[in-house]
Each structure stands twice: as structure tokens, then as C-alpha cells.
């Protein structure tokens, strides 16, 4: 599953890059691009004068060789200064021009941010979902579902600035506006919350539906017939079964958090992979952009695989050969 998916993603990104409107040679040369001799020279240096198939095979070779190529900024182009430089946040130390180093370095930051968002989601969204299900059709239920709908309906680029205004300007709980200072710094709190609000509704709903479905099951009645306290009936007898559909959503959400934190990273000025994607797309730094896309595809495939493996942990009937 993994290899064909990756090859197809590579083909698509490469084709888009090849036929796309952004000319890497121009990106490297900047103002000088009108000089035809210079242009041809750089084009040859980048290997862009070769036919499509050769270029693609060469690209595949580079990727599978584990090198992933070089950023155009390595060729002394403007890419690094014009767009990438603008986005440099506090604590960003990306001086390397190797695509792999750039992607992995940025991904580490995004992963830390996503980790907190995921913790926030699993703790709060699942708790709220269980509460809503147990208090089904009461005010508590309606309040939880409604507030989740509201939280998830407001886009990150609205919630983010609003939170910044409240917690940085009005009530100065946080001193700095953005940037990244490691996952245990206070700067990580707000972006993680904003990142978690988007998928909140899905998880709350999914958990609620899962628990509601289990509520009427015979084995829940048996647990009650044993005189078990309600808290243990929920925790031991209902939660694991109810979590199976939630796990599916959490898998999708994790991929989404890792690959789609574009807005949040932009708003909070966090040098994660989302920001790298925006920067390289705007500066025409193709090798890096394609690396980002490819890596994101890899993340999605890997997370899906992990999700499947985790089913076995939840459901004892699932076995792997």
C-alpha cells in the first residue's frame, strides 16, 4: 500500500511542478532572468533542460536514495530571502538547504504542536462526548453539542487572532504574540488550542454517538446488574467499544493536524511544516515544496496504518497475521 501511494503522489506533485506556472529558474535568478545566457546556464545546472521522464526518474532516484535534493536557495537564489526569510519566527534555526533537513526540522515543530492539540482533543472532546451521551437529551447534552458546533464553525484565522487579542493584549497571560520556543513553552498553549477547536465537533459527536449506541447493549445491563458504579460501567464496559469509531476519526484528525496546520502556523508565526509549505509555494522553491507534499502524503499513509494497528488494542477480536 505504502509504495504505490507514494509513487503516485510523487508523480502528481512532480507533474504539477513541471507544468505549473512557477518557473524555478526565474525563482533562482530573480531580476537577472532576462539574461538569456544566464537563464540557460542555470536551467542546465538545475537539470531542467532534460525531458520530463528523465527528470522524473532522476527525482525518484534522489528521493528513494534518501537525499531529497537541495533547496533552490542553495543555488544562491532569492528564494531563501524573499519569502522564507519573512517567515522566520523566534527560535527558527533552519540554515540547512537540504530538503530533507528542512522538512524534518519543520515537521518536528508541527508534530509537537499537533501532539498538544491531540492531547487536548482526546482529553476534552472525549470527556465532553461521554458526558453528552450519559446526559443524553438534557440541557447538558445540548450545551455541549451546541458549543462544539460553534467552536468548530469559527475558522482558525478568526479564533486565533481573537484569542491573541484577549490573552496577549487585554489580559496579558502570554507575553509574546507568536513564534516557537519548544513544546513546553507557554507559546505552545494558544496555537494548540486553536488547532484543536477545528476537529473538536467531530470527536465530540463521534464519542457521543458511540456511547449512546453502547448504552442500550445487553452487556451494559449486565454490568449494572452486577451493581457496578456508573462511572466504572462507562469506563470499563462502554468506553473501549465506543472508542472504535472515534479512533478512526482521531486518525484522520491526526493526519489533518500534521499536514493542515497552515493557518495556525501562519497566525502564530510558528515555523512548522505548514508555514514551510506556504513559503516555498510562494517563493517557487520546488524541491522543498515537493518534499513537503510528499512527506505529508507519507504522514497520512503512516497514520492510517497506525490507526489500523491501534484497533487491535481496543478490540480484542481484531488480530493481525
Amino acid at each position: 500500500m505504502l509504495a504505490p501511494t507514494v509513487i503516485i503522489v510523487m508523480l502528481i506533485t512532480f507533474t504539477l511542478g513541471y507544468y505549473g506556472p512557477i518557473d524555478p529558474v526565474r525563482a533562482v535568478l530573480g531580476e537577472e532572468w532576462e539574461d538569456e545566457a544566464r537563464y540557460a546556464e542555470v536551467k542546465k545546472a538545475l537539470g531542467l533542460d532534460r525531458p520530463f521522464v528523465i527528470q522524473f526518474l532522476d527525482y525518484m532516484g534522489t528521493m528513494f536514495g534518501g537525499h531529497w535534493g537541495q533547496s533552490l536557495s542553495a543555488f544562491g537564489g532569492v528564494a531563501s530571502d524573499r519569502a522564507v526569510g519573512e517567515g522566520r519566527g523566534a527560535g527558527f534555526s533552519g540554515t540547512s538547504t537540504g530538503v530533507r533537513e528542512m522538512v524534518l526540522g519543520r515537521l518536528a515543530i508541527s508534530a509537537q504542536l499537533s501532539f498538544w492539540a491531540l492531547v487536548f482533543l482526546t482529553v476534552f472532546a472525549i470527556l465532553l462526548g461521554v458526558l453528552a451521551a450519559v446526559k443524553q437529551n438534557t440541557t447538558v447534552d445540548y450545551a455541549i453539542v451546541t458549543s462544539s458546533i460553534i467552536a468548530s464553525s469559527i475558522p482558525a484565522y478568526v479564533i486565533g487572532p481573537v484569542l491573541l487579542i484577549i490573552f496577549v493584549l487585554k489580559i496579558p497571560v502570554f507575553k509574546t504574540v507568536g513564534g516557537w520556543d519548544g513544546m513546553f513553552s507557554r507559546q505552545a498553549i494558544l496555537p494548540a488550542i486553536v488547532l484543536a477547536t477545528g476537529p473538536m465537533l467531530v470527536i465530540v459527536r463521534q464519542t457521543r454517538a458511540g456511547i449512546v449506541e453502547v448504552l442500550g447493549k445487553d452487556f451494559v445491563r449486565t454490568a449494572r446488574a452486577k451493581g457496578m458504579p456508573e462511572r466504572l460501567v462507562v469506563a470499563r464496559h462502554m468506553l473501549r467499544t465506543a472508542m472504535i469509531p472515534v479512533l478512526t476519526s482521531l486518525g484522520l484528525v491526526t493526519s489533518g493536524l500534521l499536514t493542515g496546520s497552515l493557518f495556525v502556523e501562519q497566525i502564530f508565526n510558528i515555523p512548522g511544516i505548514g508555514k514551510l509549505a506556504i513559503q516555498t509555494l510562494m517563493s517557487g522553491d520546488h524541491p522543498v515544496f515537493m518534499g513537503v507534499v510528499l512527506f505529508q502524503a507519507l504522514i497520512i499513509v503512516t497514520v492510517n496504518l497506525l490507526t489500523d494497528l491501534l484497533y487491535g488494542g481496543l478490540d480484542p477480536r481484531v488480530t493481525y497475521d
Binding site: D218, F219, T222, A223, A225, R236, H237, R240, P316
Partner: peptide
């Protein structure tokens, strides 16, 4: 003691 022992016992415990 319930009628249907398959559904009356928790599958994940």
C-alpha cells in the same frame, strides 16, 4: 443471569 451470553458479556474486557 441473562438469556444471551454472547451479547450479555462485555466483548472488550
Amino acid at each position: 443471569v441473562f438469556q444471551e451470553p454472547m451479547t450479555a458479556l462485555t466483548p472488550t474486557m
